[in-house]
Amino acid sequence: MYKTTDGEEIFVVDGHVALWDGSTANQKNRHGQEFIDCFYDYHRNLSPQEWLWPHDKFLRYDQETFIHDVFETGYVDVAIFQPVGLTDFYKEPFGNVAKNFALAEQYPGRLIGNGYFDPRDGEEGLERLEEWAKTYHLRGVKLYTAEWHGDSKGYRLSDAWAQRYLAKCLQVGIRNIHVHKGPTIKPLNMDAFDVSDIDDAASTFPDLNFIVEHVGLPRLEQFCWIATQEPNVYAGLAVANAFIHTRPRYFAQIISELLYWLNEDRIVFGSDYALWQPRWLIDQFMSFELPDDIRQETGVQLTREIKKKILGTNAARLYEIDVPSRLSQLRHDVISQKTRQAG
């Protein structure tokens, strides 16, 4: 819950959090080390200095740290786990669906644990997806299209097997497909980060929502053009959020383009914790104002009402969270009690 200076309470959903294990003990090979180190470089590059973590803490942090940073000090009411398995790089999954679920059970109403799938796992993966959907009550999945899988270094949502998995999602009650594009090799005649496969998938599956993480960066323009045509395509703000500190003008430009090409109902906040912390992101976002020249050029506004949608109610709609009843549920939970005691 974020409280404005004039006393208004704002419901916050963090659409992108993780409790990862990038520890040396869990790394399978050099790629595992390089993967978490690359995250750490993002963290060092875009965080305010006072929020920087030492490297070893960043590799693996405990549940208490997570609960503290996200809920107790981070203003977040509900957070959504977006795990990636990366089992070619790590012994135990980097993002662990079972562990996330266990933590969510401990804090009722606070955490939504998404799953993931990899279409290259074929029939076996389809069965696992179905089983996970039942066991963990999945409402969403996180996909990383550049994930390595044996000799393959990526897939596209337009692949035949990916389509079968998406059809399965629909069948088992998964509605939200969070897509993170990364550098794939195949096919070569496409740009590596190309997001046009999301266009195909979104028009083939109009009842699924496609939340494109990192607003399609490094292909923001392609993403915006797709999103103007497909009403079930959303912008996940993770990474773009973090510009608010190092390059506020880029942030202003990005958010105003999203408001211009999409609209205020299809933009979803995500801290990408532990890459960045929700506390400073939300503080800066709430006090952020679009510069006059950008407002004039694009004709868009970033009012408090719009900020409230981006920070909470848009994601609440995607995950069918009834905000007033969820708030009254959370008001008396252990986290709220602890926060009140801390004053």
Partner: peptide, 25 residues
């Protein structure tokens, strides 16, 4: 001009990320 703005913004944002990552690396 809207399209130009978006194309240029995407490229500049990427350059900003890439240069920042290179500098910490």
């Amino acid at each position: 001009s809207h399209i130009l703005r978006l194309v240029a913004l995407n490229m500049e944002s990427n350059a900003h990320i890439c240069q920042g990552l290179l500098a910490v690396r």
